[in-house]
Each structure stands twice: as C-alpha cells, then as structure tokens.
C-alpha cells in the first residue's frame, strides 16, 4: 500500500521540491564598532528535485553546514540571511522560508526532517529511546498514544530494527545502532524532504555501508528528496544522484554524480576525485598545496585560485559565474574541463 502511495506521489509532482536563489547568509559580528563578516554562504543558487539524493561535498569550513542550516531555517544570530530566498514546494504547499517563517513550524518533521551527525547529541542520554520519539514526532502525527506506538514499532521493523530498542537507553546501543535509530526518528513521519548532515562520518566502514543502505532504502520507499552532506567523495559516489561541490562558501561545480566522477570540469573536483586512494593502486597521490581559505577574508576573484594548478591571471581578478557545463551540470571556472582525472 505504501508503495502504491509513493508512486502516485512521485508521478503527480515531478517539479523541484526546493529552490534556492542567490542565497547569501553571513555571520555578522559587531564588536565595539568593528564589523566582521564571515561569508559562509555566498550567492548560492540550486534546486533539488523530487525523489533524488542530492549530495553536497566540501571540506570543513567550506560552509556546507551553514548552507543546510539556512535551508532548514534553523539559523541563529550572529548568522543572518542577507539576501536571496529559499522556497519549498511540499505537495502544492509553497513555503518561502524567510518571507513567512510561521509556516515553517508546521512543515518541520512532517515535511522536512534532519538526520544529524552526532547521534549521541540527538538522543537524550538519560531518557529511553521512546522518549525521543514521543518528544520529536508525537505531536506531528496527530495520533493517540497507542496508535502512535504501533506506528513507530512497525516503522522500526521495516527498517530492520527490533522494536525493543524503544526501551533501551542510548548508551546501551552501539554507534551504528544509534545512527539507525536517528534515521528511524527522522523518517517516522514520512517526510518529503530529508537533510542528512555527515550521518556516516563517525562510523566505521562496515556500519557505514549498512547506514548508507538504510538511507537509500528509506528514500526509495518514501520517494522523498534527500540532501546528503559529507566530505567523503566515495560516500557521494555510492549514494547520490546529483552532486554539488562547495568551496569557501560558493558552489564550484554541480552535476550528475556519474558524469562528475568520469569527467570533472572544475580543477577542485578533479583533485578531490584523483586523491581518493584505491585498493590495488599504490601510485602516489598528490595533495593540494596551501590551506583552505578563511571565509572572513577570502581571496579575490575565484576563491580557489591560490591553490589551483591551472590558475591564470584572470582567476585572481574576476569571479567566475556558474555556467552550464559540458556534462549537463553547472561549473564556475574560466578553464572548465581542462584538467582530467587520469
């Protein structure tokens, strides 16, 4: 029954579920008259389609967490949205996150949910797991206690978890198990849009595959859209349909995952892919010179130019626009497509 419902839903609405236009969100500090801006999200436009897994890659302090916080409408001062808009379309219900903040409250959890990185910091260590479900999901479901409990149990079973975990304390579960519980928690209301922030980074390889498989399975069953954030390119290779690469608060490249791994257009993408170690290959991998730029004082022009192996004069003066790329995506580089992985 669930499957039929899902199909109906995905056929009926083929449009984009999330549209971001020229979004700018800065951390603004005003200390004794000295204004300091950290441009964590700087002029980003993107769309996420229904029923796809959209990956966001980038190193720490590239602004990827700031971006998804802005998408979820979960920002606090000193961070502020300076310009642009974030629009959701949940089954015909339009929400402009920053123009009408009141509407967001109703949509949370029901339409939009969040899988966090640190499962231990999501689950209260001194309360049983069922408390987390009651606390987060109960009021969004509109069911009575018994029906809610039955619904949670059947949901856990479908995800391959024993319903007995509801009676356990977080410390009694392993890291992988806890992460699975937070995935169950985030998907129990069957949201159309799920944000996953580094859900597998703290896990070891065997558990990581299970958790990725679980996310994929949930996504396929619900037909929802997932924004998947991680710095690990091999995780993106495994799970995402489209991929965006962030560098210093801006998008460097966006495109279909397979095509980006085959023929990356941006030199930064090419570097990220080329530096992945593979079993069966001991050829020396080059590492990028220099360090990630400070967002408080970013380089002029293209922000990647001080570390770019093929930078030209123009790169330090002008900011490249996001233009359609040869592989059906978009890329911001004056010399797009001139480096190869092999």
């Amino acid at each position: 029954m669930t499957l039929a419902m899902t199909n109906e839903r995905s056929v009926a609405q083929a449009a984009d579920v999330l549209t971001i236009k020229d979004l700018k969100a800065y951390y603004i500090n005003d200390l004794f008259g000295v204004r300091r801006e950290v441009r964590a999200v700087d002029d980003i436009s993107l769309t996420v389609r229904r029923n796809e897994i959209y990956g966001i890659a980038g190193e720490s302090s590239s602004g990827k967490t700031s971006l998804i916080k802005t998408i979820a409408g979960a920002i606090r001062p000193p961070m502020r949205v300076v310009g642009g808009e974030v629009r959701f379309d949940f089954g015909g219900k339009h929400i402009d996150v920053y123009a009408e903040p009141g509407k967001m409250k109703a949509a949370r959890w029901q339409n939009l949910s969040y899988i966090m990185q640190g499962s231990m910091s999501v689950l209260n260590p001194v309360r049983r797991i069922k408390h987390a479900f009651n606390n987060f999901a109960f009021r969004h479901m509109g069911l009575d206690r018994t029906a809610f409990r039955a619904r949670v149990e059947s949901h856990l079973q479908r995800l391959g978890l024993d319903p007995n975990v509801l009676e356990a304390f977080p410390h009694q579960l392993s890291g992988g198990m806890r992460q699975r519980v937070t995935i169950a928690l985030a998907t129990v209301c069957e949201p159309e849009f799920i944000i996953a922030d580094e859900p597998t980074t703290a896990l070891d390889v065997l558990v990581q595959q299970d958790v990725l498989g679980l996310i994929k399975e949930v996504q396929e069953r619900l037909g929802s859209s997932v924004v998947f954030v991680t710095h690990d390119m091999s995780v993106h290779a495994a799970i995402t349909d489209r991929l965006a690469i962030m560098y210093a608060g801006r998008l460097a490249e966006e495109g279909p995952t397979q095509a980006m791994f085959d023929t990356p257009q941006h030199p930064y993408t090419a570097h990220l892919i080329a530096s992945l170690p593979r079993i069966g290959d001991t050829a020396t991998r080059k590492s990028l010179a220099g360090k990630p730029p400070s967002l408080a004082n970013p380089p002029t022009g293209c922000r990647f130019h001080p570390r770019c192996p093929i930078a030209i004069d123009r790169c330090s003066r002008e900011v490249p626009d996001m233009l359609p790329s040869a592989i059906g995506g978009r890329v911001a580089c004056f010399r797009a497509g001139e480096v190869s992985v092999k």
Binding site: Q209, G213, M233, S234
Partner: peptide, 18 residues
C-alpha cells in the same frame, strides 16, 4: 566495505550489502 571511488561500483556495493 571499502566504497570504490566510482559511482556505479559503489552503488552496486551498497545494493549487495542491502
């Protein structure tokens, strides 16, 4: 369990594991 750095192979690995 090591994810291969190639989308097709990696997606297949996840599928097999499932």
């Amino acid at each position: 369990a090591v994810l291969p750095p190639d989308p097709k192979a990696a997606a297949a690995a996840i599928r097999d594991r499932r």
